[in-house]
C-alpha cells in the first residue's frame, strides 16, 4: 500500500535519511525502530510531506505522492499522528475530533460516537478543553481523531512516549484490533522497541539514517545481538 523508495532527506547540511526503503502493506503493522536521532521521525515527516526529500520517492497505492502538499494527504487516506501527540490544546475534545473528519466527504458529527465507544474516557470530557487531558487521554484523542479521517494508512510517531505501560498496552491493543478488522496499514515509530515488536508484524531498524535490518517482528525480537546493538534491550 505504502512504498518508500531510497529516500534521502537532509536538514540543511545534516543528512537525516540516507537512502531508506521500506514497505507498509495493508492489514499489517510495520514498526520503525532505532535509537534517538536515527531518523525515525524524519521518515514519518517525509512520508506525510512535512519535509521534502532530496531524493527518492514515496508511493501510495502505486501513485507518487512525494511532492504532494501536506494538506492533500488526508484526502488520499493518510493520517499522521505526530511526535508529541498534536492535540490542539485550546480546542475542546469534541472540536479536536471534529477536525479529524472535516476533510472527508460525507463526514457526520455522529461519527464521533465511534471514538467515544473506543475510548469512553473521552466521552466524559467531550466539551472540556483539550489541555485538561492527561497524557494517555491525549493519545487516545489524537488516535481517535486520526481514525475519524478513515485513513487507509496511519502513521504513528512514538505514541507510547510518557505513558504508563497499562495505557500503552490499551492503545496498542486497540490499534492492533483495528488493523486486523479493517485492513488498515500502520507505520509505527517507536523508541520502546519491546512494546512495538509485541504488536507489530514487521520491523525496520534504522541507525544513523540507514536501514540496518528488515525482518518479521518475531525474528527481530529473537535476535539478541541486534537488539543489544540497536534497540536497547
Amino acid at each position: 500500500m505504502l512504498e518508500v523508495r531510497d529516500v534521502v532527506t537532509t536538514y540543511g547540511p545534516v543528512l537525516a535519511l540516507d537512502g531508506v526503503s521500506l514497505s507498509v502493506p495493508a492489514g499489517r503493522i510495520t514498526a520503525v525502530l532505532g535509537a534517538n536521532g536515527a531518523g525515525k521521525t524524519t521518515l514519518l515527516r517525509t512520508v506525510s510531506g512535512l519535509v521534502r526529500p532530496k531524493a527518492g520517492a514515496v508511493e501510495l497505492d502505486g501513485k507518487d505522492i512525494t511532492r504532494l502538499p501536506v494538506e492533500a494527504m488526508v484526502q488520499r487516506g493518510m493520517a499522521h499522528v505526530p511526535e508529541g501527540r498534536g492535540v490542539i490544546a485550546e480546542l475542546t475534545v469534541a472540536e479536536n475530533l471534529k477536525l479529524g473528519g472535516l476533510f472527508r466527504k460525507g463526514a457526520k458529527d455522529s461519527e464521533a460516537d465511534e471514538v467515544y465507544d473506543l475510548f469512553p474516557a473521552l466521552r466524559e470530557r467531550r466539551d472540556r478543553s483539550a489541555h485538561t487531558l492527561s497524557g494517555g487521554e491525549r493519545q487516545m484523542l489524537v488516535v481517535g481523531r486520526a481514525l475519524l479521517a478513515r485513513p487507509r494508512v496511519l502513521l504513528l510517531d512514538e505514541p507510547s512516549l510518557g505513558l504508563a505501560p497499562r495505557v500503552v498496552a490499551q492503545i496498542f491493543g486497540i490499534v492492533r484490533d483495528l488493523v486486523d478488522r479493517t485492513g488498515l496499514a500502520v507505520l509505527l515509530v517507536e523508541q520502546n522497541a519491546k512494546s512495538a515488536l509485541s504488536i507489530a508484524d514487521t520491523g525496520v531498524v534504522l541507525n544513523l539514517g540507514r536501514v540496518v535490518a528488515t525482518d518479521s517482528a518475531d525474528a527481530l525480537a529473537a535476535d539478541e545481538q541486534l537488539r543489544h546493538a540497536f534497540l536497547g534491550f
Binding site: L50, A72, A79, P82, I88, E90, L91, G100, F103
Partner: peptide, 24 residues
C-alpha cells in the same frame, strides 16, 4: 462554523492542522 474551527486550528496548531488537511 467549520470555517471558524479551521481558523482556530490554523492559529493554535499550525503543523497539526496541516496534517489534518487544513489549508493553513
Amino acid at each position: 462554523t467549520d470555517v471558524g474551527l479551521r481558523l482556530r486550528a490554523a492559529a493554535f496548531g499550525q503543523e497539526v492542522a496541516r496534517l489534518l488537511g487544513v489549508r493553513v
